[in-house]
Nucleic acid binder design. Structure first.
Lengths: 207, 207
DNA sequence: AATACTGTACCGGCTGGACGGTACAGTCAG
DNA sequence: CTGACTGTACCGTCCAGCCGGTACAGTATT
């Protein structure tokens, strides 16, 4: 679980393919080639295509979970902590390099076998409970989380998500609804002024 | 464009398959069988699989658009009309028989060729503009729309969407944010009391 | 009125290619 | 010697798209 192993490289290659070429191109051969490995080697690590996709989904789930936990730990005010953390983690991915590649596993699962997304579904339900019971008016907290999901979905599906100043205003308003400070930029060096904003639609997902 | 033609039957069959068996089962043969037609006949109407999926997407777009327009026409108060209509149309599908089958086209498009969803993307962008410029505080209107999308996505992906009383409370709060009356049940016969609530996750989408 | 022709709707078998998965012999580091 | 691979050949299946039909309604020709 420390430095990137072959295992990780293969997973990363799979994500790259989905993002760049679309789910339809996620074949065992393509992944092997992308990772500079052989098909045999790939199947040595992941016994089947489904196993590969499951691993992608789980990778995303743990990554998001970690981002959530970190964001929450950095937020001292108890009421609305989870909700704000959820918002931050969905609206701006942890690792900028990753971009919104995180969801590639979900996409792949939905395309070939929705049941593979089950672990994510469970996680999601748990997060939801946390949000609902966060010391805020229940409906408000849920609305913040749902709006975060809406934003995330737009990115995922390549729909035009609000960007730039508009996005920033929406995020600020959501943070406010979640009982957060209006100036959450305290720990941000502001070296990257519009860093909160995502450029455009993914522009990924071609065929 | 009047009574259901063969064309419509084929499209409906395709939607049924995606909903019942999952996107992975959407093959030309399966659609033909489901519609009680032959593969040749199917290909006579839709020159390719992509053409079929495009038609599914467009069908959904026009259906949603119609529902939106109708819902808006029935809402006399100018400020926030679009936003409320958008909320109502996403949160409860027009035709109950359809269920949330509407999105099957999107699912199919994302699975095989994301570019096929482009028409929907355009529509979506247009709707967004309408919402943003609806006489409400921009951020609030967008949040309502995004939350509606979040709800819709949960249904689409089979994630546990808020249901029952909780869903009703959230919807009420969203309607309030959109400047609507708190009792929008005026034209509802209430013969189906919990009709607003969707039972569970789609439970569709198997392999 | 009979014949010939045309366009539309639809059928169903076939093929070629892609892809998941298997098998296996070989390589190389520790 | 073992465990982590590589490289390649191969199999079976699935599936999109093609194509050569059929049925039939309407229309023109004689």
């Amino acid at each position: 679980m420390s430095r990137p192993t072959r295992h990780d490289h293969l997973l990363a290659a799979a994500e790259r393919i989905v993002r760049r070429d679309g789910v339809g191109r996620l074949t065992l051969d393509a992944v092997a080639v992308e990772a500079g490995a052989s098909k045999g080697g790939l199947l040595y690590h992941f016994a089947s295509r489904d196993a590969l996709i499951t691993a992608m989904v789980e990778r995303h789930a743990t990554a998001f979970s970690a981002s959530l936990e970190a964001s929450m730990a950095a937020d001292p005010a108890p009421p609305g902590r989870w909700t704000r953390a959820y918002l931050r983690s969905s609206a701006s991915p942890a690792d900028p390099g990753d971009g919104d590649a995180a969801a590639t596993g979900l996409l792949a699962a939905m395309a070939s076998n929705p049941a593979l997304a089950d672990p994510l579904r469970e996680q999601y339900a748990a997060w939801r409970e946390r949000v609902a019971d966060d010391g805020l008016p229940e409906a408000d907290a849920m609305i913040v989380a749902l709006a975060a999901d809406g934003l995330w979905m737009a990115d995922l599906l390549g729909f035009a998500a609000p960007a730039g100043a508009q996005r920033r205003r929406i995020l600020a308003r959501l943070l406010e609804m979640a009982g957060g400070s209006d100036h959450p930029d305290h720990s941000r060096p502001s070296a990257a002024p519009a860093a909160t904003t995502r450029a455009e639609a993914p522009a990924s997902l071609r065929r």
